[in-house]
Computed example of a mutant assay.
Amino acid sequence: MTYELVELKDMMVAGLSARTNNYAPDMGNVIGGLWAQFMGAYSSVLYKANEKTLGIYTEYEGRETEDYSVLAACEVKKTEGQPDGITIKTIPAGTYAKFTAEGEGKEAVAKVWQNLWNMDLSRSFVCDFEEYEKTEEGRCRIHIYIGLKN
């Protein structure tokens, strides 16, 4: 599976968060429920930088097999004045491996992650994220950014 190395600057995000791990029996429900809740709250997030939505994985207790925080969010230009209950985070600057998938969001992302777990990437386990955008054809283009050790 191919990817490109990219250098990203800090990115401020606002959204909703939860805690889970990849082996929790309710992981799918936690993440799916978080997205459903976020889509209902999307219009209340202020100062959006663009129309993309982000799935962010951070605060890892170790590797991908341990607990982490997941956020359904969007990039914002400023964080002040966000409504109660909105989580504010910064995606840290650094080197990321950028993968691209197109198609039905959930299935396309699952396929990329399945392949990622079998790759020998020098992951930092600080922050990884998915960036969702609609294409002109009404499909979804997903960029998956995996934080790498420097």
Rank of each mutant, 00 (worst) to 15 (best):
A41V: 11
V30P: 00
A72N: 02
M39K: 12
C74T: 15
E64V: 07
A73E: 04
E51Q: 13
A18L: 01
G15P: 03
L46K: 15
E66A: 11
D67R: 10
E66H: 10
M27R: 14
L16Q: 08
Q82I: 03
N21P: 05
G55K: 03
Y68H: 05
K48V: 00
A41L: 06
V70D: 06
Y47A: 10
D84G: 07
Y68M: 05
S69Q: 10
E51H: 13
P25S: 10
D67P: 05
L71S: 03
V30N: 01
S17A: 15
P25F: 06
Y42F: 12
G33N: 06
D26M: 05
Y57F: 13
D26R: 10
I56K: 06
M27A: 15
N21K: 11
L34I: 08
E80A: 15
E61M: 10
L16N: 02
A72T: 07
Y60H: 08
T20Q: 00
A36W: 08
A72Q: 01
T65M: 14
A24M: 11
Y47G: 02
A18V: 04
N22L: 12
N21V: 04
M39H: 11
M27N: 14
Y23K: 12
K77G: 02
S17I: 04
T20Y: 02
A24L: 09
D26H: 11
M39R: 14
L16V: 06
P25A: 10
N50S: 13
E61Q: 10
I88K: 08
T53M: 14
L34E: 09
D84V: 11
L34Q: 09
A24T: 01
Q37S: 15
G15M: 05
D84C: 00
S69C: 08
G28F: 06
I88G: 02
A24Y: 05
A24E: 11
I86W: 01
A72C: 07
S17K: 13
E75N: 01
L34P: 12
V70N: 09
G85Y: 01
Y23D: 15
D67N: 14
G55N: 04
T79I: 11
